[in-house]
């Protein structure tokens, strides 16, 4: 909250949203047809950056908290890699409880990433 008060307004995400709107609705009609794909890709990149900026660090922190809960120890920055290695080794397959927890983390991780990268795809698959 304090950071927001220090920074000028409009916020970075608000500027990105406005810039994207200008790109799609004012600049794109002026571009030749062969430039439209690139303009849409630029607009898509801006939308991802905007959503990631709005979401902030909290979604990633929640995944790290879940990983700490799963492992109980270990360096936070390496836990996702450790999870990947342990899944490859089949380490959770003997314990129903921890396998359940692993699956919950995998779902959380995936949905969190798609909320920024492609919320439309999430919606199309029945996720809010």
């Amino acid at each position: 909250m304090e950071c927001r008060r220090v920074r000028d307004l409009p916020t970075g995400p608000a500027l990105l949203a406005l810039a994207r709107d200008v790109l799609l609705h004012e600049l794109m009609p002026l571009l030749p047809q062969e430039g439209h794909l690139a303009a849409r890709l630029v607009a898509n990149s801006m939308a991802i950056a905007e959503r990631e900026a709005v979401a902030g660090e909290e979604p990633a922190q929640e995944i790290l908290r879940q990983l700490e809960k799963l492992y109980g120890d270990g360096e936070q920055g390496l836990l996702l890699r450790r999870l990947a290695q342990d899944i490859r080794a089949g380490d959770f397959e003997e314990s129903q409880l921890s396998e359940r927890h692993v699956r919950e983390i995998l779902w959380l991780h995936t949905i969190t990433k798609l909320r920024s990268a492609n919320p439309r795809f999430l919606n199309a698959n029945g996720f809010s």
Partner: peptide, 26 residues
């Protein structure tokens, strides 16, 4: 941008292999 699509595949992998595991409220 294509790299971001890998996560779409990951959602599909979860939907195929863990259809009962969809988190509540998601």
């Amino acid at each position: 941008l294509t790299g971001r699509r890998a996560t779409e595949c990951e959602l599909e992998i979860l939907m195929l292999l863990d259809p009962d595991g969809v988190p509540k409220g998601a």
